[in-house]
Nucleic acid binder design. Structure first.
Length: 433
DNA sequence: TCTGGGGTCCTAGGACCC
DNA sequence: TCTGGGGTCCTAGGACCC
């Protein structure tokens, strides 16, 4: 088997640049929700030494006098751009696995039996994605996924590869591994890297020279798989699970919250979001977990992290059922006297919706049917008219006496530097004068 | 003042059963 | 009342990914 990994270069920054070419060649960073910290950096920003995860408020003092363009994240835009890139990849390979918003593995079959110029194919594909979507992508092609990852990093790093690096011989493999820091290997995280470095293992090649048994003992079966993949043995299976086993929606708050009543709005909203994700993958959940936690950076304040899990009487996926359970969970775990900074809802124990077993403990079949129909209708309305056109009342904050407007949790998240919804909202479409 | 969000897999240890 | 050991299931925590 030969794998091609396609990886968008500096994905979020590249999405922004497609619609704002004046950002080209400049140091650009994209920030997390509430403009909290840096989640994506342009090449120029990386060259300045801006680390990933840097709190935005520290940027000015850490990088004085530098011209850095900071943008709020616009996930609607990134999701749409990603879908465009993926559709081009899908049209170019028989079988693809979308691994994340910015990367996908393409299965290219067995090179031994197919006359195939991987290098030419990859260069052409990268050029086509750039031409048709504006997004720069790098391709790595190799007999295992871990080696394809290595190859894609070379394709990114050295322009001489023309966006595509192929590792298809043992000679190339050994040369690449000798130049590749072990800390950058897919599957070797910060902790493991530190341990390996301490033992004098610096490159991926050093790592492959360890014997298999000691790797397994020290790094468990997962570490051994990485070792085997670097040797060229294809052993990391990626399959789309039929459904996610857990689904989580969580956010930090722009301001800390103190009362249970204040938490009701975000918790209801997170619950409805989880319910929606459940319905999208055609499944139902058996458990609903709520968690609330204080701000770990405020050492001057009392710290607390509380969680409570509710077992549903029967699997559910409607907004009202999930939200009711979540609020019950909030009720059970809430304690006053703390400043809550972050909360979330996790639904777990998912089962396919068509395998639903009725239970005498559950709400009546008539009521269940009503909730199911209502959810399907609200999904349709929200798809046509925009998210949160229709929502459960508990996710709506009471009207502000000054403005007379009710607000949703999502509207309270700060995105003061967000770009327009160029591709998904007709009001934001680019005009050419 | 301001510090992200959403997943998966593996292992160890405890509870429980036979 | 005393005793052993093996299997399974569940959970918490750690590590990793993007």
């Amino acid at each position: 088997m030969l794998y091609a990994l396609a990886d968008c270069d500096n994905c979020f920054v590249s999405c922004e640049r497609v619609f704002n070419p004046s950002l080209e060649g400049k140091a650009v960073v994209v920030l997390s929700n509430n403009d909290g910290c840096v989640v994506a950096r342009s090449q120029e920003a990386k060259a300045l030494g801006i680390p990933e995860g840097l709190p935005f408020y520290q940027m000015a003092e850490r990088f004085p006098g530098k011209e850095i363009h900071a943008l709020s994240s616009n996930y609607t835009l990134y999701g749409d751009m990603s879908a465009r890139v993926m559709s081009l990849l899908r049209a170019s390979a028989p079988d693809i696995f979308v691994y994340s918003i910015d990367e996908a593995f393409m299965m290219l079959g067995d090179s031994k039996y197919i006359a195939f110029d991987a290098k030419a194919w990859g260069e052409e594909l990268a050029a086509k994605v750039r031409r048709w979507t504006g997004m720069p992508v790098s391709l790595g092609i190799a007999p295992t996924k871990t080696l394809a990852k290595v190859a894609s990093k070379f394709a990114k790093r050295y322009p001489g590869y023309h966006k595509c690096c192929v590792i298809d011989t043992d000679d190339k493999r050994l040369k690449a591994l000798a130049l590749f820091p072990v800390a950058d290997v897919w599957g070797i995280g910060r902790r493991t890297a530190a341990r390996l470095e301490a033992a004098g293992i610096h490159t991926a090649l050093d790592f492959t020279r360890l014997d298999a048994e000691s790797v397994r003992r020290a790094l468990t079966i997962t570490g051994l798989r990485t070792w085997q993949e670097l040797h060229g043995q294809d052993c990391i299976a990626l399959e789309h699970l039929p459904r996610k086993q857990t689904i989580c929606t969580s956010r930090s708050f722009p301001k800390m919250l103190t009362t249970k009543a204040e938490l009701t709005v975000p918790i209801s909203s997170f619950a409805a979001c989880c319910a929606h994700k459940l319905r999208q993958q055609h499944s139902m959940a058996q458990y609903v977990t709520v968690f609330i936690s204080t701000n770990p950076f405020r050492e001057d304040l009392g710290q607390q992290s509380l969680t409570h899990t509710i077992a549903l009487p029967a699997p559910a996926s409607s907004d009202p059922e999930i939200a009711a359970a979540a609020l019950k969970g909030l009720d059970a775990c809430f304690r006053s006297g703390f400043q809550w900074k972050r909360a979330g809802v996790i639904v777990s124990g998912t089962v396919p919706e068509d395998e639903l077993q009725t239970s005498f403990l559950d709400i009546s079949p008539e009521q269940k049917m009503k909730f199911t129909k209502m959810s399907a209708l609200s999904d349709k309305i929200n798809q046509r008219h925009g998210d949160e056109s229709l929502m459960i009342a508990s996710a709506l904050r009471p009207k502000d006496p000054e403005t007379g407007k009710g607000t949703t949790f999502r509207n309270s998240i700060l995105h003061t530097r967000r770009s327009p919804f160029y591709t998904t909202d007709i009001r934001d479409i680019i005009e050419v004068m």
